[in-house]
Design a protein around this nucleic acid. Structure first.
Length: 289
DNA sequence: ATGACATATGAGATATGA
């Protein structure tokens, strides 16, 4: 139990009813979300509207497509969020928005110093005497699979595996959230046969993902929803994929055992795909007790 | 379907995405 933001009922907290009423954001279960926005500037209005409606405590964003200096921080600060970015011109870029301040911030995934792509940011968020470490991940797409883009993807997944192994040794609540660009199993695609040659569903990519999970991580959505089909987080802009529900599940939140113990819910915010000027991805949200 | 859209760059057509 993460004391300080985890009480589910006022009677469980050592606070007066008045304090309870005044501090709902602190006392409610902790919400952590991930969303590939496909350009934060193009998606600013959607992102702000979604934050106002959902009020997550921590948000992992991917595909900012802008440098740190161009990130619209003020708009998020006005909503009460702290902003940590690891941006890049035109491509990639990841961020962490949070109601509490982040510490121990790491930008970039270790293991390949010459890699300049902005695909990883991590920080520790403290509430009371407990901490949650959260990473925002934008794993390489890897297409076409017969090029060095695919080998870069697989190498990046090895680096993520090694770094996750290091973090798991801390034996603390850890959430590795983001766009993994991996369809883990055929349950995670409306038309899996259409993806067999794609870097997102190639056996090598799925094997690397399994190897990561098999370190002892929990796929939050599958933990809550079991083998339920039709859970998708991405629908292509092209060929009416959304209208045909031609979707895939590639945005994941992987939890350390200490975080999995706290998992209360996981949901995909599918309706956001209906909004004007949508991202091709939708938010995925978990709550921790 | 080496493309259907969408985005950034930069001022037109190209690179990238998944």
């Amino acid at each position: 139990m993460l004391h300080g933001f985890s009480c589910q009922a006022a009677w469980a907290c050592k606070t007066s009813p008045l304090q309870w009423a005044l501090a709902p954001a602190i006392m409610a279960a902790m919400k952590i979300a991930t969303w590939n926005v496909n350009s934060i500037k193009a998606r600013l209005e959607n992102t702000l509207a979604w934050l106002k409606g959902s009020s997550p405590d921590i948000v992992c964003l991917q595909e900012l497509k802008c440098e740190d200096t161009g990130f619209p921080s003020q708009a998020f600060e006005d909503l009460g969020y702290n902003v940590l970015t690891h941006g890049q011109k035109t491509y990639n870029g990841v961020a962490l928005l949070s109601k509490m301040k982040g510490e121990d911030v790491r930008r970039g995934l270790p293991g390949e110093p010459e890699d300049t792509q902005a695909r990883y940011i991590e920080a520790v968020f403290t509430a009371g005497s407990h901490t949650v470490r959260v990473a925002s991940i934008y794993l390489p797409n890897g297409n076409p699979p017969d090029t060095d883009k695919f080998t870069y993807k697989l190498r990046w997944m090895d680096r993520l595996h090694d770094h996750a192994g290091e973090l798991l040794q801390l034996e603390e609540p850890l959430v590795l959230a983001g766009d993994y660009n991996v369809i883990p199993t055929s349950l995670d695609a409306r038309f899996p046969e259409a993806w067999t040659a794609d870097a997102l569903f190639r056996p090598e990519s799925r094997a690397k993902f399994r190897r990561l999970v098999n370190l002892g991580l929990t796929d939050a959505v599958r933990q809550i929803h079991g083998d339920e089909p039709g859970l998708y987080t991405f629908w292509d802009y092209q060929a009416g994929a959304w209208q045909k529900n031609n979707g895939i599940r590639i945005d994941h939140l992987l939890l350390s055992p200490q975080a999995a113990d706290l998992l209360a819910s996981a949901q995909i915010d599918k309706q956001v795909r209906e909004w004007d000027k949508p991202s091709d991805h939708v938010p995925v949200i978990i709550t921790l007790k």
